[in-house]
Design a protein around this nucleic acid. Structure first.
Lengths: 339, 339
DNA sequence: CCATGGGATGAAATCGTTTTCAAAACTCAG
DNA sequence: CTGAGTTTTGAAAACGATTTCATCCCATGG
C-alpha cells in the first residue's frame, strides 16, 4: 500500500541502499543520482516507516511520560515542558495517565518498554507498592520527576520542597502568626513529607510549638483540602494562618474557611504551593510557592538526551529552587500580585 | 541485548513460530510445550518487541492526539478522555502540542504517519492554512475533535456550539438584559463562529438589536478576554451582560470589569463557555455552558476503533449537546452552584 | 490395513528499514 | 598504461516479530 524505499529505488533507478544513504546523509552519493532519488521521493510522496527504522536502529525517538493525572494543572504544565523539549530534540512523547494507580504505573512501564521508547519520565503516584514490584531496573534511561522513590537510584529532577515550605512558613511567622496550621499531602509522597518537614523546621527555629490539632492531611485535591480544613476547624480554636501543600488543596481549604464565616486573609491567612494559573485568578489571589514546572519537564528530557546522545553514565539529581510569590491571601501588605 | 522470541524458543526447545502461537493464542499447541514456553518466557522475562510486531502486523495500537495546548484545562480534560478510552481498548497515545501553529500541526501529522499510528484525533488550531496544505487525505482514520475544517470530510465529534451560545444568550435575555455584549474567539475557528451565530440568533429572535460596539473578538485566552473587555468598556455605554466564548476569556473579562469598578453580576452579568474546573471556584462562581469534555475524548477513540476493528466505512459526525450550568455570575436568583 | 483428513509443528518468507561487505568504478602517481 | 588506493554502489544480511506453507503425525472410517 504505502510506498516503500524500494519503490523509490526503482523509480530512481538505484538501489535501496543508495536511497537510504541520500535520505540519511550517511555516505556520499553521486550528485546525479541524489537528484533522481530526491525527485522520486517527491513524486511518490515517500514517508519512511519509523517502525522499520526503529527496529533496525534501536532508536525510536520516543519518550514515555507517566503522570498521575494530566488534568491537574501542575502536571499539565510539566507535560507541556516535556512535549516542547522533546519536539526540539526530535522526539515524540507517549502520554500515560496512571490515575494514581500503582498497577497502572506498572502496566505502563511495561508497555513503554515493549514499545521500545528511548527513555521514560516518571512522575510516580508514589505508593509503597511501586517501590517493590515495579520494573525500574530496565536499561532504558529513566528520570524520576517531582517525586522520588526511596530505594531507587535514578536520575531525577526535583524541587527543594523543604525549602519552599520553610520559606512560606517563615513568611507567615514574620507576619506575626503563631497558630499556623498545615494540610499535608499523602504522606508516602516525598513531596508531601518534605513540605511537612520545611514547615516544622520553620516552626522549630521560631520557637513556636506546633499544635497537632492544626495539622491534617489529605489527597492533593480540592476535596482533600476542603475536608482537611473542615477537620481543622471542627477542632475549635482555629488557626490564624494555613499552609496548604498544593494550590488546589488551598482552594478547597479556602472554601471551607469561608463557609465557616471566616474571612481570608483577615481571619485566616492562606498560602499554597505550586503556583498554578488559577492561583492568580481566584479572590483573594493566592500567595504560593512557585515551582518551575515547564523547566522541570524540559530538564527531564534533556537528562534523557544526555544519556542517549552524549553517553552520560553517572546518575544525576538536580534540585530546583522554588520561589515564594506573594499575593493577597497571606494578608501581608506588600501584595505584589503576579497575574 | 534484550531477549527475543528466538531465545525463548531455544530455552523451551521449540520453534519461534510455536512461541508466537502460544503467546497470541493464534493456533492450538500441545499442552506440554505450551507450559515449557510459558515457563521460558517467565524465566527470561521476555517482552515482545512492539516495533517488530507492528511492522509485520501493520498495527501499532497507538493513537495520535494533536491539541493546540495541553495546558488549557479544556484540552487537558479531552486528553484525559482520550487517554482513558485508549487504554481501555489497548491503545497508547502520542501527545502532540501544536502550540496553535499550523506548521507544527503539519509536521506532527507527518510524524504520526511515519510512526504508523492507527488513528489520529485532531483538535486543529484551525487557521485557513491547514485547510489547504495539510496531509489529511491519508488512509489512516482521522477524527476531527471540537473543531471542523470546512473542506474536510472526516469523522468528527463536535458539540452544538450554536445551541449552547443560544441558550446562554436566551438566559440573559429572559433575565431582562438588553445590552448584551459578546467576546468571540478567533473567527476562523468553527467553534468561535458557531457561538457567535447562536448569540445572534437569540438576539434576533428576541428582537433586540446588537450594538456593534459590544462585540469584540480575541484569542481563547485570559489576556484575550481581558483585552477585549477593556475595548468594550472603552467605548463607553457599557453592557449589562456579557457572553464570553470561553471560561478563560470570561475570567479575563471579569478582571477587566472589576478593574473598571463594576460589580459582577450586579452591574454586568457574565456567562462563559466550557465549564472548566476553575469556573466553579472563582468568585462569583461562573455561569457557563458545559461541554462533555471527557466524553468527547472517549467518543473520538471509539470512532477510531470502530473503523479499525469493526470495519466501519461511512463517515460519522456526532454532535453532542452542551448544557447551561447556572451559578452566580449571571445574577439570576436560582444560583444552583455546582462545585 | 490403507487412505484420508485434520491437528501440531518448524522452516522460511515477509514486513521496511539500515548496515555490512564485497565488487565496481574511478583517481592519480609512477 | 598499470596498479594501488579511494570512492560509489548494490546485494544481502540483519532487526524481531507473524504468517504462510509444507511436513509430519496420528486417528478414524471404509
Amino acid at each position: 500500500m504505502a510506498t516503500t524505499i524500494h519503490d523509490v529505488a526503482r523509480e530512481a533507478g538505484v538501489s535501496a541502499s543508495t536511497v537510504s544513504r541520500v535520505l540519511n546523509g550517511t555516505a556520499p552519493v553521486n550528485e546525479e543520482k541524489r537528484r533522481r532519488v530526491l525527485h522520486a521521493v517527491e513524486k511518490l510522496n515517500y514517508r519512511p516507516n519509523a517502525l522499520a527504522r526503529g527496529l533496525k536502529k534501536k532508536r525510536t525517538y520516543t519518550i514515555g511520560l507517566i503522570v498521575p493525572d494530566i488534568t491537574n494543572p501542575f502536571f499539565a504544565e510539566v507535560a507541556k515542558g516535556v512535549e516542547d523539549a522533546s519536539r526540539d530534540y526530535g522526539y515524540t512523547v507517549i502520554l500515560c495517565n496512571s490515575e494514581n494507580d500503582p498497577a497502572r504505573e506498572r502496566t505502563y512501564l511495561n508497555v513503554l518498554g515493549e514499545k521500545q521508547v528511548d527513555g521514560v519520565i516518571f512522575v510516580t503516584a508514589g505508593s509503597n507498592e511501586v517501590n517493590r514490584s515495579t520494573p525500574l531496573e530496565s536499561p532504558i534511561p529513566l528520570v524520576m520527576l517531582d517525586r522520588e522513590i526511596p530505594g531507587i537510584h535514578a536520575d531525577s529532577v526535583l524541587v527543594d520542597n523543604k525549602r519552599g515550605a520553610y520559606e512560606a512558613a517563615r513568611h507567615l511567622l514574620t507576619l506575626g502568626h503563631k497558630r499556623i496550621g498545615i494540610i499535608t499531602g499523602p504522606l508516602p509522597l516525598s513531596t508531601a513529607v518534605e513540605r511537612w518537614e520545611g514547615y516544622r523546621k520553620a516552626m522549630r527555629e521560631a520557637g513556636v510549638p506546633v499544635d497537632p490539632r492544626l495539622v491534617k492531611n489529605g489527597g492533593f485535591t480540592f476535596e482533600g483540602g476542603y475536608a482537611a480544613m473542615q477537620e481543622i476547624l471542627g477542632e475549635g480554636d482555629p488557626p490564624s494562618a494555613l499552609l496548604a501543600s498544593s494550590d488546589i488543596m488551598a482552594l478547597g481549604a479556602m472554601k471551607a474557611i469561608e463557609e465557616c464565616g471566616f474571612r481570608i486573609p483577615e481571619d485566616v491567612a492562606v498560602v499554597g504551593f505550586d503556583d498554578i494559573m488559577v492561583a492568580s485568578l481566584v479572590k483573594p489571589a493566592l500567595t504560593t510557592v512557585a515551582q518551575p514546572k515547564r523547566q522541570m519537564g524540559q530538564l527531564a528530557v534533556e537528562m534523557i538526551v544526555e544519556r542517549l546522545e552524549r553517553g552520560r553514565k553517572r546518575v544525576r539529581r538536580v534540585l530546583l529552587a522554588p520561589r515564594l510569590v506573594i499575593r493577597e491571601s497571606c494578608g501581608c501588605g506588600r501584595c505584589g500580585d503576579g497575574a
